[in-house]
Amino acid sequence: MKVGVLHSRIRRDEKLLLNELRERDHAVHKLDVRDRSFSIDQAGDQFATLELVVDRCLSSSRSRYLTAWCERHDIPVVNSATTAATCADKVRTSLALSEAGIPTPRTEVAFSIDAALDIMDDLGYPCVLKPVVGSWGRLMARIESRNMAESLLEHKATLGHYEHKVFYLQEYIETEGEDLRIVATDGVPIAGMRRSSDHWITNAARGAEVASIEVDSELETLVANVDAAVGGGLLGIDLMETQDGYTVHEVNHSVEFNALNSVAPIDVPSAVVDWLESICLETTAVSS
Protein backbone atom coordinates (compact mmCIF):
# COMPACT_ATOMS: atom_id res chain seq x y z
CA MET A 1 0.00 0.00 0.00
CA LYS A 2 1.33 3.45 -0.94
CA VAL A 3 0.00 5.63 1.80
CA GLY A 4 0.45 9.35 2.39
CA VAL A 5 0.17 10.75 5.88
CA LEU A 6 -0.81 14.42 6.11
CA HIS A 7 0.74 15.84 9.25
CA SER A 8 2.44 18.73 10.97
CA ARG A 9 3.71 17.94 14.45
CA ILE A 10 4.19 14.23 14.97
CA ARG A 11 2.37 13.15 18.10
CA ARG A 12 2.97 9.84 19.79
CA ASP A 13 -0.17 8.66 17.99
CA GLU A 14 1.24 9.41 14.52
CA LYS A 15 4.48 7.72 15.47
CA LEU A 16 2.65 4.55 16.49
CA LEU A 17 0.80 4.62 13.20
CA LEU A 18 3.91 5.26 11.09
CA ASN A 19 5.82 2.48 12.83
CA GLU A 20 3.00 0.00 12.31
CA LEU A 21 2.68 0.90 8.62
CA ARG A 22 6.43 0.52 8.08
CA GLU A 23 6.59 -2.76 9.98
CA ARG A 24 4.08 -4.10 7.45
CA ASP A 25 6.29 -2.89 4.59
CA HIS A 26 3.86 -0.29 3.33
CA ALA A 27 5.39 2.61 1.39
CA VAL A 28 4.79 5.54 3.71
CA HIS A 29 5.02 9.10 2.44
CA LYS A 30 5.04 11.68 5.19
CA LEU A 31 3.47 14.86 3.90
CA ASP A 32 4.21 17.79 6.18
CA VAL A 33 1.47 20.23 5.21
CA ARG A 34 3.58 23.17 6.42
CA ASP A 35 6.19 22.52 3.73
CA ARG A 36 4.00 22.66 0.65
CA SER A 37 1.17 24.43 -1.07
CA PHE A 38 -1.89 22.86 -2.62
CA SER A 39 -3.00 23.93 -6.07
CA ILE A 40 -6.74 24.14 -6.39
CA ASP A 41 -6.68 22.79 -9.95
CA GLN A 42 -3.97 20.12 -9.80
CA ALA A 43 -2.99 17.49 -7.28
CA GLY A 44 0.54 16.94 -8.58
CA ASP A 45 2.47 13.79 -9.32
CA GLN A 46 3.31 12.81 -5.76
CA PHE A 47 -0.33 12.56 -4.74
CA ALA A 48 -1.35 10.81 -7.99
CA THR A 49 0.65 7.72 -7.03
CA LEU A 50 -0.84 7.34 -3.56
CA GLU A 51 -3.41 4.67 -2.94
CA LEU A 52 -4.64 6.24 0.27
CA VAL A 53 -4.08 9.45 2.22
CA VAL A 54 -4.48 9.49 5.98
CA ASP A 55 -5.25 12.90 7.45
CA ARG A 56 -3.44 13.33 10.75
CA CYS A 57 -3.25 17.12 10.78
CA LEU A 58 -3.10 18.59 14.24
CA SER A 59 -4.90 21.68 13.03
CA SER A 60 -8.59 21.22 12.35
CA SER A 61 -8.63 23.98 9.71
CA ARG A 62 -5.88 22.25 7.72
CA SER A 63 -7.72 18.99 8.17
CA ARG A 64 -10.99 20.40 6.84
CA TYR A 65 -9.44 22.01 3.79
CA LEU A 66 -7.05 19.23 2.85
CA THR A 67 -9.56 16.40 3.09
CA ALA A 68 -11.81 18.46 0.79
CA TRP A 69 -8.82 19.07 -1.49
CA CYS A 70 -8.09 15.33 -1.68
CA GLU A 71 -11.69 14.56 -2.53
CA ARG A 72 -11.71 17.27 -5.22
CA HIS A 73 -8.82 15.41 -6.88
CA ASP A 74 -10.29 11.93 -6.34
CA ILE A 75 -7.53 10.95 -3.93
CA PRO A 76 -8.88 8.42 -1.42
CA VAL A 77 -8.61 10.05 2.01
CA VAL A 78 -9.54 9.15 5.56
CA ASN A 79 -11.29 10.58 7.30
CA SER A 80 -13.61 12.14 4.76
CA ALA A 81 -14.07 15.87 4.31
CA THR A 82 -17.61 15.52 5.62
CA THR A 83 -16.40 13.84 8.79
CA ALA A 84 -13.67 16.43 9.32
CA ALA A 85 -16.02 19.36 8.75
CA THR A 86 -18.66 17.90 11.04
CA CYS A 87 -16.38 16.91 13.89
CA ALA A 88 -14.18 20.01 13.77
CA ASP A 89 -17.13 22.22 14.66
CA LYS A 90 -19.09 21.51 17.82
CA VAL A 91 -22.28 23.09 16.49
CA ARG A 92 -22.20 20.95 13.39
CA THR A 93 -21.42 17.87 15.48
CA SER A 94 -24.37 18.59 17.75
CA LEU A 95 -26.70 19.14 14.79
CA ALA A 96 -25.61 15.83 13.23
CA LEU A 97 -26.05 13.92 16.49
CA SER A 98 -29.43 15.54 17.12
CA GLU A 99 -30.67 14.71 13.64
CA ALA A 100 -29.70 11.07 14.21
CA GLY A 101 -31.50 10.98 17.56
CA ILE A 102 -28.31 10.33 19.52
CA PRO A 103 -28.46 11.34 23.18
CA THR A 104 -26.33 14.36 23.98
CA PRO A 105 -26.32 16.88 26.81
CA ARG A 106 -28.89 19.64 26.26
CA THR A 107 -27.11 22.12 23.99
CA GLU A 108 -28.03 25.65 22.93
CA VAL A 109 -26.31 28.18 20.69
CA ALA A 110 -26.52 31.96 21.00
CA PHE A 111 -24.93 34.87 19.17
CA SER A 112 -25.28 37.66 21.70
CA ILE A 113 -24.42 38.04 25.35
CA ASP A 114 -28.03 38.69 26.35
CA ALA A 115 -29.31 35.64 24.54
CA ALA A 116 -26.52 33.52 26.04
CA LEU A 117 -27.33 34.75 29.55
CA ASP A 118 -30.99 33.87 29.09
CA ILE A 119 -30.00 30.35 28.09
CA MET A 120 -27.59 29.98 30.98
CA ASP A 121 -30.22 31.12 33.46
CA ASP A 122 -32.50 28.49 31.99
CA LEU A 123 -29.85 25.75 32.02
CA GLY A 124 -29.02 26.64 35.61
CA TYR A 125 -25.63 26.88 37.24
CA PRO A 126 -23.21 25.26 36.83
CA CYS A 127 -23.46 25.05 33.06
CA VAL A 128 -20.78 24.66 30.42
CA LEU A 129 -19.50 27.11 27.81
CA LYS A 130 -17.33 25.67 25.03
CA PRO A 131 -15.59 27.15 22.01
CA VAL A 132 -17.07 25.84 18.77
CA VAL A 133 -13.58 24.94 17.52
CA GLY A 134 -10.92 23.51 19.77
CA SER A 135 -9.81 20.45 21.61
CA TRP A 136 -8.02 19.10 24.68
CA GLY A 137 -10.49 20.95 26.89
CA ARG A 138 -9.02 24.33 25.92
CA LEU A 139 -11.15 27.38 26.72
CA MET A 140 -13.93 25.28 28.16
CA ALA A 141 -15.55 26.83 31.19
CA ARG A 142 -17.81 25.51 33.92
CA ILE A 143 -19.92 28.54 34.73
CA GLU A 144 -20.83 28.58 38.40
CA SER A 145 -22.98 31.71 38.62
CA ARG A 146 -24.65 34.48 36.64
CA ASN A 147 -21.89 36.89 37.69
CA MET A 148 -19.27 34.56 36.29
CA ALA A 149 -21.31 34.11 33.11
CA GLU A 150 -21.54 37.86 32.53
CA SER A 151 -17.79 38.32 32.96
CA LEU A 152 -16.77 35.42 30.79
CA LEU A 153 -19.16 36.26 27.96
CA GLU A 154 -17.98 39.86 27.94
CA HIS A 155 -14.37 38.72 27.73
CA LYS A 156 -15.11 36.31 24.91
CA ALA A 157 -17.10 38.89 22.95
CA THR A 158 -14.43 41.56 23.41
CA LEU A 159 -11.19 39.69 23.07
CA GLY A 160 -11.92 36.73 20.89
CA HIS A 161 -11.97 35.74 17.28
CA TYR A 162 -15.44 35.98 15.74
CA GLU A 163 -15.98 32.30 16.48
CA HIS A 164 -15.80 33.14 20.18
CA LYS A 165 -18.99 35.13 19.70
CA VAL A 166 -20.76 31.91 18.84
CA PHE A 167 -21.75 30.86 22.34
CA TYR A 168 -22.07 27.08 22.58
CA LEU A 169 -23.73 26.23 25.86
CA GLN A 170 -24.45 22.91 27.48
CA GLU A 171 -26.06 21.61 30.59
CA TYR A 172 -23.50 20.45 33.13
CA ILE A 173 -23.68 16.74 33.84
CA GLU A 174 -22.17 15.57 37.09
CA THR A 175 -19.98 12.57 36.36
CA GLU A 176 -17.65 12.75 39.36
CA GLY A 177 -14.74 13.44 37.02
CA GLU A 178 -15.22 10.47 34.73
CA ASP A 179 -16.15 9.85 31.13
CA LEU A 180 -15.61 7.21 28.46
CA ARG A 181 -13.68 7.25 25.20
CA ILE A 182 -14.34 4.69 22.48
CA VAL A 183 -12.07 4.53 19.45
CA ALA A 184 -13.80 3.01 16.45
CA THR A 185 -13.38 2.48 12.72
CA ASP A 186 -16.46 2.75 10.53
CA GLY A 187 -18.66 2.35 13.58
CA VAL A 188 -16.97 -0.77 14.96
CA PRO A 189 -15.25 -0.22 18.31
CA ILE A 190 -11.57 -1.06 18.56
CA ALA A 191 -11.43 -0.50 22.31
CA GLY A 192 -12.68 1.77 25.04
CA MET A 193 -11.41 3.38 28.20
CA ARG A 194 -12.63 5.23 31.24
CA ARG A 195 -10.94 8.57 31.95
CA SER A 196 -10.86 9.76 35.53
CA SER A 197 -9.66 13.08 36.82
CA ASP A 198 -9.83 15.30 39.87
CA HIS A 199 -10.73 18.05 37.40
CA TRP A 200 -14.13 18.25 35.69
CA ILE A 201 -12.29 18.13 32.34
CA THR A 202 -11.23 14.52 31.87
CA ASN A 203 -8.99 14.73 28.83
CA ALA A 204 -6.08 12.27 28.83
CA ALA A 205 -3.87 15.00 27.33
CA ARG A 206 -4.48 16.92 30.55
CA GLY A 207 -3.43 14.10 32.78
CA ALA A 208 -6.60 12.09 33.38
CA GLU A 209 -6.03 8.52 34.52
CA VAL A 210 -7.22 5.92 32.05
CA ALA A 211 -8.44 2.35 32.42
CA SER A 212 -9.69 -0.11 29.85
CA ILE A 213 -13.43 -0.87 29.71
CA GLU A 214 -15.47 -3.53 28.02
CA VAL A 215 -17.57 -2.14 25.20
CA ASP A 216 -21.10 -3.44 25.81
CA SER A 217 -23.79 -3.91 23.17
CA GLU A 218 -25.46 -0.60 24.05
CA LEU A 219 -22.18 1.19 23.41
CA GLU A 220 -21.62 -0.74 20.19
CA THR A 221 -24.98 0.39 18.85
CA LEU A 222 -24.40 3.96 19.94
CA VAL A 223 -20.95 4.06 18.35
CA ALA A 224 -22.33 2.73 15.06
CA ASN A 225 -25.04 5.39 15.09
CA VAL A 226 -22.57 8.18 15.89
CA ASP A 227 -20.30 7.03 13.07
CA ALA A 228 -23.18 7.15 10.60
CA ALA A 229 -24.30 10.54 11.89
CA VAL A 230 -21.00 12.39 11.47
CA GLY A 231 -19.76 10.83 8.24
CA GLY A 232 -17.83 7.84 9.52
CA GLY A 233 -14.20 6.78 9.73
CA LEU A 234 -11.62 6.58 12.48
CA LEU A 235 -13.27 8.33 15.38
CA GLY A 236 -12.86 8.95 19.08
CA ILE A 237 -16.27 9.10 20.66
CA ASP A 238 -16.56 10.62 24.13
CA LEU A 239 -19.50 9.73 26.31
CA MET A 240 -20.76 10.29 29.82
CA GLU A 241 -22.80 7.90 31.88
CA THR A 242 -26.03 9.31 33.27
CA GLN A 243 -28.96 7.79 35.14
CA ASP A 244 -30.78 7.66 31.80
CA GLY A 245 -27.96 5.97 29.92
CA TYR A 246 -25.04 7.16 27.83
CA THR A 247 -24.84 10.66 26.43
CA VAL A 248 -22.35 11.67 23.72
CA HIS A 249 -20.52 14.93 24.33
CA GLU A 250 -17.76 14.93 21.71
CA VAL A 251 -16.66 13.18 18.53
CA ASN A 252 -13.00 13.49 17.47
CA HIS A 253 -11.94 12.99 13.86
CA SER A 254 -8.15 13.22 14.40
CA VAL A 255 -8.32 10.95 17.37
CA GLU A 256 -5.43 10.41 19.72
CA PHE A 257 -5.15 6.77 20.75
CA ASN A 258 -1.83 6.63 22.57
CA ALA A 259 -3.49 6.67 26.00
CA LEU A 260 -6.00 4.02 24.98
CA ASN A 261 -3.25 1.88 23.51
CA SER A 262 -1.46 1.92 26.85
CA VAL A 263 -4.38 0.20 28.61
CA ALA A 264 -6.37 -1.62 25.92
CA PRO A 265 -6.13 -5.41 25.57
CA ILE A 266 -5.74 -4.90 21.81
CA ASP A 267 -2.99 -3.24 19.79
CA VAL A 268 -4.81 -0.09 18.70
CA PRO A 269 -2.44 1.13 15.94
CA SER A 270 -2.42 -2.38 14.51
CA ALA A 271 -6.22 -2.37 14.38
CA VAL A 272 -6.16 1.05 12.71
CA VAL A 273 -3.74 -0.17 10.06
CA ASP A 274 -5.91 -3.27 9.51
CA TRP A 275 -8.72 -0.86 8.75
CA LEU A 276 -6.57 1.28 6.44
CA GLU A 277 -5.58 -1.84 4.51
CA SER A 278 -9.22 -2.84 4.13
CA ILE A 279 -10.09 0.61 2.77
CA CYS A 280 -7.22 0.44 0.34
CA LEU A 281 -8.40 -2.94 -0.91
CA GLU A 282 -11.92 -1.58 -1.38
CA THR A 283 -10.83 1.54 -3.26
CA THR A 284 -8.45 -0.47 -5.45
CA ALA A 285 -11.21 -2.93 -6.28
CA VAL A 286 -13.62 -0.11 -7.17
CA SER A 287 -11.13 1.68 -9.41
CA SER A 288 -9.95 -1.45 -11.28
Binding site: S60, S135, R138, N252, S254, V255, E256
Partner: peptide, 11 residues
Amino acid sequence: EAPELEEDWGE
Protein backbone atom coordinates in the same frame (compact mmCIF):
# COMPACT_ATOMS: atom_id res chain seq x y z
CA GLU B 1 11.62 25.52 19.29
CA ALA B 2 8.23 23.95 18.71
CA PRO B 3 5.49 26.29 17.50
CA GLU B 4 3.12 27.73 20.07
CA LEU B 5 -0.20 25.99 20.50
CA GLU B 6 -2.85 27.22 18.07
CA GLU B 7 -6.54 27.49 18.85
CA ASP B 8 -7.65 24.88 16.33
CA TRP B 9 -5.12 22.23 17.32
CA GLY B 10 -6.24 19.00 18.85
CA GLU B 11 -8.13 15.83 18.09
